[in-house]
Amino acid sequence: MSLNRKCHLRVIFLAGLSLLLIGGCAKTVKQGGGATLPPVEEVTKKKSEEAIEGSEMDITDLDASIKKKEYPGIEGEFIETDLLKDCYFDFDKHDLTPDARRILAENAEILKKRFPNRKIQVEGHCDERGTKEYNLALGERRAASIKNYLVSLGIPGRNIGTISYGEEMPIDPRHNEDAWAKNRRGHIIILSD
């Protein structure tokens, strides 16, 4: 009996918690996102789904990590999350270092668990050294390397798009080896539907 009771209590507690959570989410999004109703509903729904699916994860962490974003001058919104880490390349190289493979493996797990069946775009970036045009080509190749590796880890290829930004979007604008190392990267974004 006591076991049953405990179960019941648990269910009630969880239900209450999730209600609270939904309420909270709706509120914050409303505050942040303005008056338009449909997107709010959509987001809350998505998040509750995700919350249920990824019950193992720290829920609050998940919230903070998901951001809607837009690049200035480039059409379309997308979702970016800190959970997906950038991987880095050597100068004038497009092959994946062991570090990059480790990071991409983690990313693949997160994608599978949190964003299954979502379309993602892999961005290939370069540092400022080298010509802009060659770097545009190099970025293509870097993005393709990442895509191929993610496919080998079980992410469906049809869900992965690639783009090269060449050296046009440095993360660190400085002109030194530190900055260059950060800028030679592969970055993953989740496309809005």
Binding site: Y71, P72, G73, I74, E75, G76, Q121, K132, E133, L136, I163, S164, Y165, G166, E168, M169
Partner: peptide, 27 residues
């Protein structure tokens, strides 16, 4: 475009300039 443009190139008659632009999330 308020975007990222690259690599301008003149047509031989000087009337057109081709270039690459990222504004539609593709170069």
């Amino acid at each position: 475009h308020d975007s990222i443009c690259l690599s301008p190139a003149w047509s031989p008659d000087g009337k057109n300039i081709a270039y690459t632009c990222f504004r539609k999330r593709n170069p």
